[in-house]
Design a binder for these strands. Structure first.
Length: 258
DNA sequence: ATGCCTGCTTGCAGCAGA
Protein backbone atom coordinates (compact mmCIF):
# COMPACT_ATOMS: atom_id res chain seq x y z
CA UNK A 1 0.00 0.00 0.00
CA UNK A 2 1.46 3.33 -1.12
CA UNK A 3 0.72 6.38 1.01
CA UNK A 4 1.84 9.79 -0.24
CA UNK A 5 1.84 13.42 0.80
CA UNK A 6 1.85 16.36 -1.60
CA UNK A 7 1.71 20.07 -0.87
CA UNK A 8 0.08 21.11 -4.14
CA UNK A 9 0.20 24.88 -3.57
CA UNK A 10 -3.24 25.50 -5.07
CA UNK A 11 -5.33 22.43 -5.92
CA UNK A 12 -7.13 24.08 -8.85
CA UNK A 13 -4.17 25.87 -10.35
CA UNK A 14 -2.26 22.62 -10.00
CA UNK A 15 -4.98 20.26 -11.17
CA UNK A 16 -3.27 19.03 -14.39
CA UNK A 17 -0.09 18.28 -12.43
CA UNK A 18 -2.01 16.52 -9.65
CA UNK A 19 -4.02 14.36 -12.07
CA UNK A 20 -0.94 13.48 -14.13
CA UNK A 21 0.92 12.47 -10.97
CA UNK A 22 -2.03 10.33 -9.78
CA UNK A 23 -2.24 8.65 -13.18
CA UNK A 24 1.47 7.95 -13.40
CA UNK A 25 2.17 6.78 -9.85
CA UNK A 26 -1.24 5.55 -8.62
CA UNK A 27 -0.70 5.87 -4.86
CA UNK A 28 -3.38 4.19 -2.74
CA UNK A 29 -3.79 7.06 -0.29
CA UNK A 30 -2.84 10.71 -0.85
CA UNK A 31 -2.73 13.58 1.61
CA UNK A 32 -2.82 17.05 0.11
CA UNK A 33 -1.94 20.40 1.65
CA UNK A 34 -2.33 24.02 0.59
CA UNK A 35 -5.52 23.52 -1.38
CA UNK A 36 -5.98 27.31 -1.42
CA UNK A 37 -9.64 26.75 -2.20
CA UNK A 38 -12.91 26.94 -0.27
CA UNK A 39 -14.86 23.71 0.24
CA UNK A 40 -17.20 24.37 -2.68
CA UNK A 41 -14.31 24.78 -5.11
CA UNK A 42 -12.59 21.49 -4.36
CA UNK A 43 -12.22 19.69 -7.73
CA UNK A 44 -14.05 16.57 -6.61
CA UNK A 45 -15.23 15.46 -10.06
CA UNK A 46 -11.75 15.54 -11.62
CA UNK A 47 -10.42 13.49 -8.72
CA UNK A 48 -13.30 11.00 -8.99
CA UNK A 49 -12.57 10.70 -12.70
CA UNK A 50 -8.95 9.90 -11.82
CA UNK A 51 -10.14 6.96 -9.71
CA UNK A 52 -10.09 8.49 -6.22
CA UNK A 53 -12.65 9.64 -3.74
CA UNK A 54 -11.80 12.32 -1.24
CA UNK A 55 -12.57 14.17 1.95
CA UNK A 56 -11.36 17.72 2.43
CA UNK A 57 -11.23 20.72 4.72
CA UNK A 58 -10.94 23.81 2.59
CA UNK A 59 -10.55 27.52 3.16
CA UNK A 60 -10.66 30.51 0.88
CA UNK A 61 -7.27 31.71 -0.39
CA UNK A 62 -4.99 29.79 1.95
CA UNK A 63 -4.36 26.51 3.72
CA UNK A 64 -6.72 23.60 3.11
CA UNK A 65 -6.05 19.85 3.43
CA UNK A 66 -7.53 16.72 1.86
CA UNK A 67 -7.27 12.95 1.98
CA UNK A 68 -7.73 10.95 -1.23
CA UNK A 69 -8.02 7.20 -1.53
CA UNK A 70 -8.57 4.79 -4.38
CA UNK A 71 -12.27 4.04 -4.60
CA UNK A 72 -11.77 0.47 -3.35
CA UNK A 73 -10.87 1.83 0.09
CA UNK A 74 -13.52 3.23 2.39
CA UNK A 75 -12.73 6.58 4.00
CA UNK A 76 -14.23 6.49 7.48
CA UNK A 77 -14.38 8.40 10.76
CA UNK A 78 -13.48 11.75 9.20
CA UNK A 79 -12.60 14.61 11.53
CA UNK A 80 -11.69 18.15 10.57
CA UNK A 81 -9.72 20.59 12.67
CA UNK A 82 -7.14 20.18 15.43
CA UNK A 83 -8.43 20.19 19.00
CA UNK A 84 -7.28 22.71 21.53
CA UNK A 85 -8.37 26.13 20.22
CA UNK A 86 -11.97 26.77 19.21
CA UNK A 87 -11.01 30.13 17.75
CA UNK A 88 -8.53 28.70 15.26
CA UNK A 89 -10.23 29.00 11.88
CA UNK A 90 -7.34 27.88 9.70
CA UNK A 91 -7.92 24.61 7.81
CA UNK A 92 -4.80 22.64 8.54
CA UNK A 93 -5.91 19.29 9.92
CA UNK A 94 -8.00 16.39 8.69
CA UNK A 95 -7.98 12.78 9.81
CA UNK A 96 -9.67 9.64 8.53
CA UNK A 97 -9.56 5.89 8.97
CA UNK A 98 -8.54 3.95 5.87
CA UNK A 99 -8.04 0.21 5.87
CA UNK A 100 -7.49 0.13 9.62
CA UNK A 101 -4.94 2.94 9.61
CA UNK A 102 -5.70 6.33 11.11
CA UNK A 103 -4.40 8.86 8.60
CA UNK A 104 -3.69 12.29 10.11
CA UNK A 105 -3.05 14.85 7.39
CA UNK A 106 -1.55 18.15 8.53
CA UNK A 107 -0.36 21.47 7.17
CA UNK A 108 1.63 22.93 10.03
CA UNK A 109 1.91 26.73 10.08
CA UNK A 110 5.02 28.15 8.47
CA UNK A 111 5.66 30.69 11.22
CA UNK A 112 7.49 33.43 9.35
CA UNK A 113 8.41 36.10 10.06
CA UNK A 114 9.99 34.83 13.26
CA UNK A 115 9.92 35.84 15.98
CA UNK A 116 6.43 37.33 15.96
CA UNK A 117 2.75 36.43 16.19
CA UNK A 118 2.91 34.00 13.28
CA UNK A 119 5.74 32.12 14.95
CA UNK A 120 3.76 32.10 18.21
CA UNK A 121 0.84 30.60 16.30
CA UNK A 122 3.13 27.96 14.81
CA UNK A 123 4.44 26.90 18.21
CA UNK A 124 0.96 26.90 19.75
CA UNK A 125 -0.34 24.76 16.88
CA UNK A 126 2.63 22.45 17.24
CA UNK A 127 1.92 22.13 20.95
CA UNK A 128 -1.69 21.16 20.21
CA UNK A 129 -0.46 18.58 17.69
CA UNK A 130 1.92 17.11 20.26
CA UNK A 131 -0.96 16.77 22.70
CA UNK A 132 -3.09 15.10 20.04
CA UNK A 133 -0.25 12.79 19.01
CA UNK A 134 0.26 11.69 22.60
CA UNK A 135 -3.36 10.54 22.78
CA UNK A 136 -3.10 8.83 19.38
CA UNK A 137 0.02 6.87 20.28
CA UNK A 138 -1.72 5.53 23.37
CA UNK A 139 -4.31 3.87 21.13
CA UNK A 140 -1.70 1.23 20.28
CA UNK A 141 -3.15 0.96 16.80
CA UNK A 142 -1.77 2.00 13.39
CA UNK A 143 -1.51 5.77 12.94
CA UNK A 144 0.30 7.87 10.36
CA UNK A 145 0.86 11.60 10.83
CA UNK A 146 1.67 12.91 7.40
CA UNK A 147 1.98 16.22 5.63
CA UNK A 148 3.84 19.50 5.41
CA UNK A 149 5.34 20.04 8.86
CA UNK A 150 7.15 23.23 7.87
CA UNK A 151 10.15 22.00 9.84
CA UNK A 152 13.64 21.14 8.64
CA UNK A 153 14.47 18.53 11.30
CA UNK A 154 18.28 18.58 11.05
CA UNK A 155 21.25 19.95 9.11
CA UNK A 156 21.20 16.98 6.75
CA UNK A 157 17.73 18.07 5.63
CA UNK A 158 18.91 21.31 4.02
CA UNK A 159 21.25 21.88 1.07
CA UNK A 160 22.89 24.67 3.04
CA UNK A 161 21.68 24.77 6.65
CA UNK A 162 23.29 28.14 7.43
CA UNK A 163 20.95 29.78 4.92
CA UNK A 164 17.95 28.79 7.06
CA UNK A 165 19.02 29.81 10.55
CA UNK A 166 16.84 32.93 10.47
CA UNK A 167 13.81 31.10 9.12
CA UNK A 168 10.96 29.79 11.27
CA UNK A 169 11.20 26.35 9.66
CA UNK A 170 14.70 25.95 11.09
CA UNK A 171 14.42 27.83 14.39
CA UNK A 172 15.56 25.82 17.45
CA UNK A 173 12.02 25.89 18.85
CA UNK A 174 10.66 24.34 15.63
CA UNK A 175 13.27 21.59 15.57
CA UNK A 176 12.75 20.94 19.29
CA UNK A 177 9.00 20.59 18.83
CA UNK A 178 9.52 18.09 16.02
CA UNK A 179 11.98 16.17 18.20
CA UNK A 180 9.49 16.21 21.06
CA UNK A 181 7.00 14.53 18.74
CA UNK A 182 9.55 11.88 17.71
CA UNK A 183 10.41 11.30 21.36
CA UNK A 184 6.87 10.06 21.89
CA UNK A 185 7.87 7.14 19.66
CA UNK A 186 6.86 8.27 16.17
CA UNK A 187 9.13 7.14 13.36
CA UNK A 188 10.33 9.56 10.67
CA UNK A 189 9.92 6.97 7.94
CA UNK A 190 12.04 8.56 5.19
CA UNK A 191 14.92 9.22 7.60
CA UNK A 192 14.56 5.67 8.92
CA UNK A 193 14.92 4.28 5.40
CA UNK A 194 17.79 6.61 4.47
CA UNK A 195 19.72 7.52 7.63
CA UNK A 196 22.55 9.39 5.91
CA UNK A 197 21.14 10.67 2.63
CA UNK A 198 20.24 14.25 1.81
CA UNK A 199 16.61 14.05 0.73
CA UNK A 200 14.58 17.10 -0.20
CA UNK A 201 10.85 17.66 -0.68
CA UNK A 202 10.84 21.41 -1.36
CA UNK A 203 12.77 23.72 -3.65
CA UNK A 204 11.76 27.37 -3.74
CA UNK A 205 10.77 29.11 -6.96
CA UNK A 206 13.62 31.58 -6.64
CA UNK A 207 17.15 31.43 -7.90
CA UNK A 208 16.64 28.35 -10.04
CA UNK A 209 16.60 26.34 -6.82
CA UNK A 210 15.41 23.04 -8.25
CA UNK A 211 18.01 22.89 -11.00
CA UNK A 212 20.69 23.63 -8.41
CA UNK A 213 19.12 21.04 -6.08
CA UNK A 214 18.97 23.76 -3.42
CA UNK A 215 16.20 22.09 -1.46
CA UNK A 216 15.03 21.24 2.02
CA UNK A 217 13.06 18.37 3.58
CA UNK A 218 9.90 19.57 5.29
CA UNK A 219 7.25 17.06 4.25
CA UNK A 220 7.27 14.10 6.59
CA UNK A 221 5.54 10.77 7.16
CA UNK A 222 5.53 9.69 10.82
CA UNK A 223 4.56 6.16 11.76
CA UNK A 224 3.24 4.96 15.09
CA UNK A 225 5.75 2.57 16.69
CA UNK A 226 3.89 -0.62 15.82
CA UNK A 227 3.99 0.24 12.12
CA UNK A 228 7.76 0.24 11.78
CA UNK A 229 7.91 -3.42 10.81
CA UNK A 230 5.44 -2.72 7.97
CA UNK A 231 7.61 -0.03 6.36
CA UNK A 232 9.02 -1.41 3.10
CA UNK A 233 10.28 1.53 1.07
CA UNK A 234 9.79 5.19 0.36
CA UNK A 235 11.05 8.21 -1.48
CA UNK A 236 10.31 11.49 -3.20
CA UNK A 237 8.81 11.86 -6.67
CA UNK A 238 11.20 14.68 -7.39
CA UNK A 239 10.63 14.59 -11.16
CA UNK A 240 7.20 16.14 -10.49
CA UNK A 241 8.97 19.28 -9.27
CA UNK A 242 10.38 19.68 -12.77
CA UNK A 243 7.01 19.65 -14.56
CA UNK A 244 5.35 22.74 -16.05
CA UNK A 245 3.21 24.80 -13.65
CA UNK A 246 4.30 22.64 -10.74
CA UNK A 247 4.20 23.12 -6.97
CA UNK A 248 7.30 24.17 -5.06
CA UNK A 249 6.99 20.87 -3.15
CA UNK A 250 7.36 17.36 -4.56
CA UNK A 251 5.30 14.36 -3.41
CA UNK A 252 6.82 12.13 -0.73
CA UNK A 253 5.66 8.53 -0.35
CA UNK A 254 6.11 5.28 1.52
CA UNK A 255 5.06 1.71 0.89
CA UNK A 256 3.78 -0.30 3.82
CA UNK A 257 2.93 -3.98 4.01
CA UNK A 258 -0.80 -4.75 4.05
C1' DA B 1 18.50 43.43 4.32
C1' DT B 2 15.80 42.63 0.27
C1' DG B 3 14.02 40.32 -3.62
C1' DC B 4 14.05 36.46 -6.42
C1' DC B 5 8.80 33.32 -8.24
C1' DT B 6 4.01 31.87 -7.95
C1' DG B 7 -1.04 31.53 -6.68
C1' DC B 8 -4.92 33.74 -4.95
C1' DT B 9 -8.16 37.65 -4.57
C1' DT B 10 -15.70 39.52 -5.61
C1' DG B 11 -8.28 40.97 -8.13
C1' DC B 12 -5.68 44.40 -11.71
C1' DA B 13 -1.47 45.30 -6.31
C1' DG B 14 -0.90 43.24 -2.16
C1' DC B 15 -0.44 39.37 0.55
C1' DA B 16 1.41 34.84 1.77
C1' DG B 17 4.43 31.32 1.11
C1' DA B 18 9.26 29.62 3.23
Amino acid sequence: MIIASYNVNGVNGRLPVLIRWLNETKPDVVCLQELKAPNEKFPEQAILDAGYHAVWHGQKSWNGVAILAKKKYAIEAVRRGLAGNKEDEQSRYIQAMIKGILIVCIYLPNGNPAPGPKFDYKLAWFSRLITKARSLIKLNSPVIIIGDFNVIPADIDAYKPERWVNDAVFFPESKAAFQKLLNQGWIDSIRKLYPDTKIFTYWDYFRNAFNRDAGIRMDHILLSPGMEKRLKKGGVHREVRGWEKTSDHAPVWIEIAD
